[in-house]
Design a protein around this nucleic acid. Sequence first.
RNA 1: CGGCGCGUGGCUCAGUUUGGUAGAGUGCUGCGUUCGGGACGCAGAGGUCGCAGGUUCAAAUCCUGUCGCGCCGACCA
Length: 479
Amino acid sequence: MAKEKKLVEAITSMEEDFAQWYTDVVKKAELIDYSAVKGCMIIKPAGYALWENIQKELDRRFKETGVENVYMPMFIPESLLEKEKDHVEGFAPEVAWVTHGGANPLQERLCVRPTSETLFCDFYKNLIQSYRDLPKVYNQWCSVVRWEKETRPFLRSREFLWQEGHTAHATAEDAQERTIQMLNLYADFCEDFLAIPVIRGQKTEKEKFAGAEETYTIEALMHDGKALQSGTSHNFGDGFAKAFGIQYTDKENKLSYVHQTSWGLSTRLIGAIIMVHGDDSGLVLPPKLAPVQVMVIPVQMQKEGVLDKAEEVRNRLGSVCRTKLDSSDKSPGWKFSEQEMRGIPLRVELGPKDIEAGSCVVVRRDTREKTKVSLDNLETEIPKLLETMQKDMYERALAHRDSHINDAHNFAELAQTAESKPGFIRGMWCGSQECEDRIKEELAVTSRCIPFHDKEQISSTCVCCGKEAHTLVYWGKAY
RNA sequence: CGGCGCGUGGCUCAGUUUGGUAGAGUGCUGCGUUCGGGACGCAGAGGUCGCAGGUUCAAAUCCUGUCGCGCCGACCA
């Protein structure tokens, strides 16, 4: 009992202080360390392995849709960044500048990319000459720098890892189709692979990306009821093309501007995984994502034959899932706790009693449910358990999300709900930015998105001003 | 950038009010006993107290500045 108490002390409980719980989990699961530069984190093996698996799976899905990877420089000349007015206004406040090469001042200062639209545009301008050159569907995996004032591991760091896709199309329709295709790809990825349910929708004018014609988003709900924008897809129309002169000759031998999109998803998603699935014992990883899916923990491994058997189990399981054996000389109890903090989905306990009975004890990380599994059935039972756990985690997150969606029909109700009920608030909106500003100003609630799939008209009047309204908006406090 | 809190062995912190030899727990190394929910004994290694000035016979402690970290707010993936 005293030992359990120590466990609880190691990680602050969610209930007590959610922000501190988050920081504790990030550190205890050994995902990152802080570095010498404010807001720049050292991603440790356990954290980087998550990103590698996200990358691997996303990249596979991208390529199925015809995406090709490229790599662009990390520096953008100031003159290039300034070409699209809205874009530079959006990003200028948070770019880092390189002003010197060695001891000598540069003729033109270079910004460290906060995003690479301008570089891709400059590149496409010469690359694309004919309709035969279209579409271009390029993506890059890289890091970008945004000089944030307030930083938090994964959620907001000054340098972060992401992918940014940049495409050019002949027609507005093609660009719109790609924009939505990628948003759906992100949403499916989050739901299938990360077990995180998302709301797909469109950003309002106020919330859209600097320079975009339309921005689409997937919004996830964290355990504390705050929303996290988890991926975005933008349709640029021909705005950037006109600013950068990206023209091609069409079939009628006329010059036309291309239509562009961009879409991105970042290491921020790791923050979502923590805050959607984690609990007071630490991280809980969805099996499909988990770098290690099963940890075999021998009990009384000094006893003759135990370690041999554990190795045999590890090797057999290794053929059906990602398995490790913890044969370090820590006590079993220590290993159990360690495995829980790191979020490893399944633990296999194997001791003399089990070996005698020809079985082992399998413990699920999410429910802590213990199952006795015959050693003969390992290769079939363990994958089944992993699959069930993945599904259960999604269902649990979905149930949590859906039970944290409330409706508001007028401002008083909106204020009351924002105050007392964490989560999304559905409310009709007249379309004016005045209302959006007022809601944000007075209630600290922002428009998360105009949903695709939930178009229910919960009333006919704006939740803020009471005028006629036809647009349903998901509102919420956000990270 | 505003508000609050914090910087002392790898980690968590005590010591600062009232200046006087650098402390604890945990972790680490070695040996032995243990092992089904963070085991224990013995022996060791490890810190110019974030940094820079100042006051003083004497500074972790007082003063000034500066950098960093956390949380809340504004801004943003």
